[in-house]
Structure formats: structure tokens, C-alpha cells
């Protein structure tokens, strides 16, 4: 597999009325790598994701994707280039049945272009995707309005939505937040499989133990600045990282 750089972030910064939410962050990501982004609450992880995916325009700095400058790109264009993201506060389309929630990304310009004209049966594809992320096929859940889904399933649906776009780069913003231990445990093997299949992943996560099972390397943010980058085992030994997590235990056993 070629190891070309798929994403490069150069000196990316964002100010919110004087507050530096993200400041001078740089990193590179090669195709097929899985990157974890960690840091204490409010350190700018989600803002960083929003900057990369175009949901927020950066104050300065650049983002390169597959060698192209995509700084400040319109968010839907980023998707059509192959960057799919999940939201921390995942909200399904409440009034639409669960499986039809996936028809929307499956109908998107990107997927229509990839498949080339006729898609065949989008309903069937949607059901397949739901099975992939752990919905039971024969239950009635996929046919109910998505507003009635329990939280764990909402997150799975969000993941399925990302995958349905057949992305080159998947960005998962705190996928595990609000999920129970067993729910996380059941979805972890799936993420590991994604990585092993050679998908490029960025995961923003608080749960380090689970994160480290999936990712190859991590970037640590604190107060919007990158304070460390490297292999998970190295990073947790870093003094500055430990200080930033002061009070909340860094689990080095991972």
C-alpha cells in the first residue's frame, strides 16, 4: 500500500473573539494510518475537527488533503472529496425511519458519482450498513422513527452514516461519549477492522484505553496547542501530557 500523505495540517489557528481555541497546530497523516486526538475538555479538539472539515473557517494556517489546499472549504465539498465526519452531539433525522436516515448520505453526490448512475436498491444498502454497525437485522428497530433510538444506537447510526459515504478519511468526534462500557466493547472490534482494512481514521476521544487499541499514533492538545505527538505509549509518559491531565488519571497500561 502506498504511504502518501493524505492529510496535512499546517499552523492551523482559530480565534473566537480573542480566545485562541486552536493555535498553530500542525500534523501529518498518511493513508491507512489511524490517528488519535486527545486532550482535556475544552482544549480545542472539536474545533480542530470543525476546521479541517470546513464547518468553521480558520483564522490562519492551511489544510492539505491529498495534496490539495482545502483550507476553509465548504463543508459539503469536503465530504464530496472523501472526508466523512461524525458529530460529538450526534442527532439523527428524528422524523425519518432509521434505515431511511442512511438513504440521505447514500443519495449524496459523492456516492452517486462513485457508483455511477444507477445505485440499485438504496434501502437494501442501508439495511446492510446498519447490520455492519451492529443493528439486528430482523428487529423492527430500523423501521422506527430515528427519534425513538436509544443513545448507543444513535452513535452507531452516526458511524454508519459516515461509512455510507465511502470515505477516504473518517473523522470520528467522540464516538464513545455517552456509550456504556459494553456498547463501546461491542463497537471496538468494528473500528479495529476498519483500521486493518486500511481505512484512514482520525478519532477524537476521551477514553484513552479504548482509543489506544485502535490508533497508531496520537496528537495531544492543551489550550489549543499541540503539546505532544507520537506513539501512544510514548505520549502517556510525556511530562507535559501528564500535567495537562492532572487529576484525571492517564492510563498507561493501555
Amino acid at each position: 500500500m502506498s504511504k502518501e500523505t493524505i492529510l496535512e495540517v499546517r499552523n492551523l489557528s482559530k480565534n473566537f473573539g480573542g480566545v485562541k481555541a486552536v493555535s498553530e497546530v500542525s500534523f501529518q497523516l498518511k493513508r491507512g494510518e489511524a490517528l488519535g486526538v486527545m486532550g482535556p475538555n475544552g482544549c480545542g479538539k472539536s474545533t480542530l475537527i470543525n476546521l479541517i472539515t470546513g464547518f468553521i473557517k480558520p483564522s490562519s494556517g492551511q489544510v492539505f488533503y491529498q495534496g490539495k489546499d482545502i483550507t476553509g472549504i465548504a463543508p459539503h465539498k469536503a465530504v464530496n472529496l472523501g472526508i466523512a465526519r461524525s458529530f460529538q452531539m450526534a442527532k439523527p433525522f428524528y422524523n425519518i425511519p432509521v434505515y431511511k436516515n442512511l438513504i440521505i448520505p447514500l443519495f449524496s453526490p459523492r456516492v452517486r458519482k462513485l457508483v455511477g448512475g444507477k445505485f440499485g436498491d438504496r434501502d437494501e444498502a442501508a439495511i446492510h450498513l446498519l447490520e455492519d454497525v451492529g443493528f439486528e437485522r430482523d428487529s423492527s428497530i430500523p423501521y422506527k422513527a430515528a427519534g425513538s433510538l436509544p443513545h448507543g444506537y444513535v452513535k452507531r447510526l452516526e458511524l454508519a452514516r459516515c461509512l455510507s459515504l465511502e470515505p477516504d478519511l473518517i473523522i470520528l468526534d467522540e464516538l464513545f461519549s455517552g456509550m456504556s462500557m459494553s456498547e463501546v466493547a461491542s463497537i471496538l472490534p468494528f473500528l479495529e477492522r476498519l483500521r486493518d482494512e486500511g481505512k484512514t481514521l482520525i478519532m477524537v476521544e476521551h477514553r484513552l484505553k479504548e482509543l489506544f487499541r485502535v490508533v497508531d499514533k496520537v496528537v495531544v492538545l492543551n489550550f489549543g496547542k499541540k503539546i505532544a505527538e507520537g506513539l501512544p505509549e510514548e505520549v502517556v509518559q510525556n511530562e507535559e501530557v501528564r500535567k495537562s491531565y492532572l487529576g484525571s488519571e492517564v492510563d498507561s497500561s493501555a
Partner: peptide
């Protein structure tokens, strides 16, 4: 309406 714009865009 600076802050508004931020919010409206997303």
C-alpha cells in the same frame, strides 16, 4: 452580529 454568524454557518 459576529457570534451569530459563527453559529449560523454550522
Amino acid at each position: 452580529g459576529k457570534f451569530k454568524e459563527l453559529e449560523e454557518r454550522v
